[in-house]
């Protein structure tokens, strides 16, 4: 179980002004600015949960992850992860966690991936049987058999990310931190990575904490989201609930032949292109079938699609709502 209570963290950042004169002045005296990176951050995550940790750049996501990994010490507050304090009991704590930083590699650049894996086995003192079992599982699930003998430098980004995730799971951690695991990946790799994370979570009950800017990751993986902005936890809840709440309005997209159809008083226009119109309406005031009927009475309908708002739009709306 992960429990954070009232975590605060302030950074002191040197102010820099432009110009040579100020650069000389800065040599002798510096002005500092205090930035409150985290303010009273509290949450609890149970074993086996999968949580999406979202927020705009600079909101405090990485700082929180670093504190939970034991890389950073907070100014105040308590943190208990499976009975250890990450920054006081580092050695005990890190055995239980796996960390993937999407933009950094933990593999040796110039040697085959399997050599890096073997070294990790010895670093964590992983029992040989467990290691073999985990490795075989990763090879099967992440399709690694072809690439294990390839040096990291020759891997594509997607292949490398699959290896990075495997490397973080060789020691069977109870908690997996994923910091932007799908950044820069192509569609196929993204789907493979998501599928794998889901499987690991389901089969091994590994707790997964995921930060990402890709809302499809969140939609595909997590039921619970934590929204952070300006160092505060703004929202902690279920994704489906949030979507329901904010997606009261439906979007109807119609491809048609004929003149531009007119809308009734319950509809508002989203977009009008050549032969395609998108409208939005509240299904309580106007049912979906009536909306389609209203348009099909005026024009020849070629294709219809109805959707609620996407997670992407919902998050954008949340950022807007909280002004972050």
């Amino acid at each position: 179980m992960i429990r954070l209570s009232n975590i605060n963290k302030t950074f002191r950042v040197a102010k820099r002004k432009s110009g040579f004169g100020n650069a000389v002045k800065a040599l002798f005296s510096r002005e500092y600015e205090k930035i409150r990176a985290l303010q009273d951050v509290s949450f609890t995550i149970n074993d086996g949960e999968m949580v999406g940790y979202i927020g705009p750049n600079g909101a405090g996501k990485s700082t929180t992850i670093k504190i939970m990994c034991g890389i950073l010490t907070p100014d105040s507050g308590e943190c208990d992860i499976n009975g250890s304090n990450p920054w006081k009991q580092r050695l005990r704590h890190v055995r239980d966690i796996g960390v993937v930083f999407g933009q950094r590699s933990q593999l040796w650049w110039d040697v085959p991936v399997i050599d890096s894996f073997d070294l990790i086995r010895d670093i964590y003192k992983i029992d040989e049987n467990l290691y073999r079992r985990n490795l075989d599982e990763m090879i099967a699930l992440l399709d690694l058999s072809e690439i294990l003998k390839t040096p990291t430098r020759s891997l594509s980004l997607g292949q490398r990310m699959r290896c990075e995730i495997a490397a973080s799971l060789l020691h069977s951690p109870k908690i997996l931190f994923l910091d932007e695991p799908t950044i820069g990946l192509d569609a196929v790799s993204k789907i493979a990575v998501r599928g794998f994370i889901k499987k690991i979570n389901a089969e091994h009950k590994t707790t997964v904490i995921l930060t990402t800017h890709d809302m499809q990751d969140i939609e595909a993986l997590t039921e619970r989201i934590l929204l952070i902005g300006k160092g505060r936890i703004l929202l902690d809840g279920s994704l489906t609930e949030l979507l329901k709440r904010s997606s009261a309005n439906k979007i109807l997209v119609v491809d048609y032949n004929g003149n531009v159809p007119s809308l009734n008083e319950h509809m508002s226009l989203v977009e009008q292109k050549d032969g395609q119109i998108s409208v939005t309406f509240d299904p309580v005031e106007l049912s979906v079938s009536n909306a389609i009927a209203h348009i099909s009475a005026q024009v020849e309908v070629l294709d219809v699609s109805v959707s609620g708002i996407s997670a992407e739009q919902m998050v954008a709306a949340l950022y807007e709502e909280y002004r972050i």
């Binding site: 990994c69 034991g70 890389i71 055995r95 930083f101 950094r104 933990q106 670093i123 964590y124």
Partner: peptide, 13 residues
Amino acid sequence: GNGEFDRYLVRPR
């Protein structure tokens, strides 16, 4: 600078 040191901090050595 490249975050390699952070990696050392999350390993049990």
